[in-house]
Design a protein around this nucleic acid. Structure first.
Lengths: 227, 227
DNA sequence: GATTTTACATACAGTCCGGACGGTATCCGT
DNA sequence: ACGGATACCGTCCGGACTGTATGTAAAATC
């Protein structure tokens, strides 16, 4: 018995894996059961770990939620970056971008988790602060990409960017109310309207063959939480 | 003692008053403490009534929340109607309308209650159904008013209406995230962008002196809740 | 290899929530 | 005026949740 069937794992490996499982379960739980419905017991059950593991890594519920929010925005950051890289140089670049944003980000169950955290942050200043800080970073993803792909016509650069900010808010509103609305076609038609309106003040840059500047990696956090 | 200091109230009066107090407290509580934080005890405490009164009028929490949602949309319906009636025939009618919608509806604490109900309805089909039905009625308020005040230019009537639907979603997204953003000026500039974009496909009708058709009164509900 | 630190597990304590229930006051039809 | 219906009150109970305290195995340190 030189090698045990269970390989020896280092402490850091164990911790990272455990946190990953907890965060994954937390985000799933947020999406399915909502913020209030995401009880520590249910999260732990979903993750298939014990209650003690969670309490070891996160002293209280808020700490877990803060880290989950961080993780969620990190994922979104990455996903948005990949989506932008996947946009090809086509005539209907604007429409493709909007569709991709809706399909790959805002209409996903993961975004429900964001909605929950967003509403919860109305009454949790720490959570609000975390979301605010990380949101800025996410916005930093597509701000350069916007100028890379599009140029204003009869409008200022500021309007160009503002138009996309408006899009994101529109998509948030859409995502939180989509379940009250009819169907996908209805959503598509409204996305189409935005595209037509946006086309009035911007156009795709000609001859863009390179993808936008690769967004920088998200810096690892060193301090876990506030103490 | 011919006249008691407390005048005799009819049963219906007592009930109506009690429900009013409960609904008022519920909406306040939703706005301040959120859906999960709006416990029956806290609502009752806020309303200054006993626990038994509530349970008499609403058999469970969901029934209370359903009625509160109904009441909230009814109020919004009324408020939107009044707002539309207050719009004067001015050059910047569009801008005034948007500002009024933001100031008088979407940025108010009452709208926070709507956000809470909205998110809660993701996991409460009954609540979702109630919101959906009543939302249609609210939308019915400004649909005629839109055509009363504006006419499309280089666009279809459908686009005209869609543009305002888009506005409402944009405002919802704005309202749920405004606390993460900077300041009022920032919001104003984005509202301004929408106005400028809208002005590209619509204009105020000339010589409109009459207010839009007065929205019909909200029909009283007869069946209280599902049994 | 002994000891200290870290990772994880289980049991417990205190709190609070939602719903049920028994009782009282007020009103209404007759 | 009187009996039933309606409105209202205060309390109790089962359950669930969060945080804590204690115990055990594994890994790191020396």
């Amino acid at each position: 018995m030189t090698d045990l069937p269970r390989p020896r794992r280092t402490q850091a490996e164990r911790s990272d894996l455990m946190r990953k499982r907890l965060l994954e379960a937390t985000l799933q739980s947020l999406a399915e059961d909502g913020y209030a419905g995401s009880t520590l017991s249910s999260i732990v059950r979903r993750a298939g770990v014990s209650r003690g593991a969670q309490v070891h890594h996160y002293p209280n519920k808020q700490a877990l939620m803060l880290d989950a929010a961080e993780d969620l925005l990190r994922r979104t950051y990455r996903q948005l970056g990949e989506m932008l890289l996947s946009i090809k140089d086509e005539d209907d670049r604007l429409a493709r971008l909007v569709d991709a944003a809706w399909d790959q980000v805002f209409s996903t169950p993961l975004f429900n988790a964001y909605s929950e955290l967003l509403i919860a942050s109305l009454r949790d200043p720490d959570l609000a602060e975390a979301l605010k800080a990380r949101l800025k970073r996410v916005q930093g993803v597509y701000a350069p990409a916007v100028e890379h792909y599009f140029e204003p016509i009869n409008a200022s650069k500021a309007d160009l960017h503002a138009m996309f900010v408006q899009l994101s808010f529109f998509l948030v509103g859409l995502a939180t109310q989509a379940h009250l609305m009819n169907d996908r076609a209805w959503v598509q038609s409204h996305l189409g309207l935005w595209v037509r309106q946006a086309a009035l003040i911007m156009r795709a840059r000609k001859g863009v063959r390179q993808p936008p500047p690769r967004p920088e990696a998200w810096p690892r956090k060193d301090d876990t939480v506030d103490r």
